[in-house]
């Protein structure tokens, strides 16, 4: 029993929590921008995967992991924009468009992987973004081992959360974003450009999902593995809902899923059946969604194309 409690509060587990939560944070924040503007983004998973691949490809050709990260953001943004064109301009069903992006991303990355690297399954190792040690903080007991030495992208993800919270709730653009996702006609009637706002939001959404994917391929690992996102885009989507469409809430949800993920790895070590443990994050998600947070209130116009009158 004592062993389990020690394990639950282990600094290594907490440090792993942050690492596992980072791709979820980026992607969930991306999902929030999109959903807040009224566009459902089921395609986060595919956008992450494309980001993961683009990061490796750019890193491979330029030799710079940071350029790889930038490449992932641009590739993700492009996918987001495409989702925007389908769902805003052509008013396609957003779930269908997002699903199409997921399937497309799976196929495209496998195809390019074989075309560029001529290898099945995994890419060769590429330059990765290395962990950094923060001088003073890393010396603090208990805290130091958790946040003192991490990947720069972990810190960047945390920064993204804070900045996004300010953008969404304190700026004029954020106010307009929320109004567009709740009541686009009202926003239109006071002269806000609904379509433009949605395009920007869904493009940011793709960019952040791309960043989340890049973390997996060039920070956590240093290569691309086919299908490496393994459903994290959907978990990020759950984190959006769990976090009630708030960046800080999504941070909490991402940490919660990250913790379950980290714990899962350690529990396997002490002999609890793997399959059972692997279910943990998902079971906790369902319990949380069903009971703890109560009724989740989505932006009202989420998923509805806006048709201008006249």
């Amino acid at each position: 029993m004592w062993d389990i409690i020690k394990l639950l509060l282990n600094t290594t587990v907490f440090a792993a929590t942050l690492r596992m939560a980072t791709p979820l944070m980026f992607t969930a924040i991306g999902g929030i921008y999109s959903e807040r503007s009224g566009v459902v983004n089921i395609g986060l998973e595919g956008m992450m995967l494309i980001g993961a691949f683009a990061a490796v490809a750019v890193s491979y050709f330029t030799g710079s992991a940071w350029l790889g990260f930038l490449g992932a953001i641009l590739a993700g943004a492009l996918m987001g924009f495409i989702h925007g064109v389908a769902s805003i301009k052509y008013r396609a069903n957003q779930v269908v468009s997002g699903t199409a992006i997921n399937i497309f991303a799976g196929g495209l990355t496998v195809y390019l992987q074989r075309l560029i690297f001529n290898m099945a399954g995994v890419s060769p190792a590429v330059p990765r973004i290395n962990d950094v040690t923060i001088p003073l903080i890393s010396k603090i007991p208990w805290i130091g081992p958790i946040i003192g030495k991490q990947n720069p992208l972990v810190y960047l993800a945390l920064l993204t959360v804070v900045i996004s919270h300010i953008v969404i709730f304190k700026t004029v653009w954020g106010l307009r974003l929320r109004s567009v996702g709740e009541h686009p006609r009202a926003a239109d009637s006071v002269g806000i450009n609904v379509y433009k706002t949605r395009y920007v939001a869904v493009t940011i959404s793709g960019a952040l999902a791309g960043a989340g994917g890049a973390y997996l391929s060039i920070a956590h690992l240093s290569r691309f593995v086919e299908g490496m996102t393994a459903g994290r885009g959907f978990i990020a989507l759950a984190a959006v809902i769990f976090g009630k469409w708030n960046p800080l809430g999504a941070l909490g949800a991402s940490l919660f899923f990250g913790y379950a993920d980290a714990l899962q790895m350690r529990l396997q070590e002490i002999g609890i059946p793997t399959q059972l443990v692997q279910m943990l994050p998902y079971i906790l998600t369902m319990i949380a969604l069903a009971g703890f947070i109560g009724r989740a209130v989505a932006p009202k116009a989420s998923g509805e194309p806006y048709v201008k009158e006249g």
Binding site: K170, T171, W173, G174, L175, R176, A187, V190, G191, I192
Partner: peptide
Amino acid sequence: VLGSELKRGPFL
């Protein structure tokens, strides 16, 4: 104020 907001830089 929506759409004709009072601004302080980018902030509402």
